[in-house]
Amino acid sequence: MSAHSPDEVKKEIKVYIGIFVALMVLTVLTVAASYLDVAIAIGIVIALLIATVKGGLVALFFMHLKSEKVLIYLSLFIMLIFFLALMILPAAMQANTFQHNAD
């Protein structure tokens, strides 16, 4: 964050309150969505989408990632690559099992 004049900080506080309201609305939406009569796969996609939006709001505004320095973005980018690899692993293993069964 750059220099903080009192006026800027007061503006920021208003943004924080707005984000708080948005997070609450999204929490209600997440719970409501779980009662939807949809297939489990679609349910997972909906839940993850809402969670990602909520997580994004926290990271961008509360953690100030919307205006951070390049080195932090770079560190998180490297983390993201490893994180995605970690998340793809189970899917890859499943695909391998399917292939194995097909053979």
Binding site: S34, I40, G43, L48, A51, K54, V58, M63
Partner: peptide, 23 residues
């Protein structure tokens, strides 16, 4: 504060994945 936001962030993902999708 950054650490505390992270604790919140983890819960934001744990909540739907563990509880809401526990069917």
């Amino acid at each position: 504060g950054l650490y505390w936001h992270f604790v919140d962030l983890v819960w934001i993902f744990l909540f739907p994945i563990l509880y809401l999708l526990s069917g």
